[in-house]
Design a protein around this nucleic acid. Structure first.
Lengths: 106, 106
DNA sequence: TTAATAGTTTACAAAACTATAAACAATATT
DNA sequence: AATATTGTTTATAGTTTTGTAAACTATTAA
């Protein structure tokens, strides 16, 4: 029987991306570090909800957190994350375009 | 109020990857088309379960399905999907290596 | 020390996801 | 026509994810 652990771990990384707010966070982080406060302002999310999502992203290894006094700052743990995220966006756009073509040819 | 539709759609693409069996399927498909039967043999999944996952992947635009008589065949709708998937795997491996380093330095 | 600020954690209900089993449909074979 | 093959769909029960609200913690300021 083949070991499926790697698929489970791999799926967990994908899961950490699989939420609209978390996608928005990744795009806001882009190349730079952003404070919790700015993330809240820009996403409009509830503090508690934002904190939960950020915590999930940190513990799944997508983000790194730093604290300075009361303030918390977050950044991507690797630029590969932004790249993978952009690639998914491309797949989405391609799909939307294909659907659009389908509809046009009716 | 900013429109978040794009984040929702983007997250849906990520969700379509966010399951161990679906990751395994994507890797099996790689560059080539594979029959339902072969997918079942190689994954060891239940027919009904496999069919549900494949159906989800088709409707989310990740896969294309073809039928020939009784047989069903599946392939990736774009090679970008394999690439994105490999990139996620790299992120995973990097994370595991980082964790390993952390543990070593205790 | 008290109050204010900035996040975090916990509790909980609703929604989404998953695996299994059983019923079903479509095609091919006898 | 009857049977077998190859999947698909539906039903269901258990699990996970999610957003909100409330309680809590840590740091800073008065």
């Amino acid at each position: 029987m083949k070991d499926k652990t790697i698929y489970l771990l791999h799926a967990n990384i994908c899961k950490a991306l699989a939420n609209p707010l978390r996608i928005e966070i990744i795009e806001l982080l882009g190349e730079r570090e952003v404070s919790f406060n700015d993330l809240q302002t820009e996403t409009g999310a509830l503090k508690s909800n934002l904190s939960q999502h950020l915590s999930l992203m940190v513990s799944s290894g997508l983000l790194v957190q730093r604290r300075d006094g009361l303030k918390a700052y977050f950044k991507l743990s690797s630029e590969k994350i932004a790249i993978a995220c952009r690639m998914m966006r491309e797949i989405l756009i391609d799909n939307l375009n294909k659907q659009h073509e389908m509809i046009k040819h009716l």
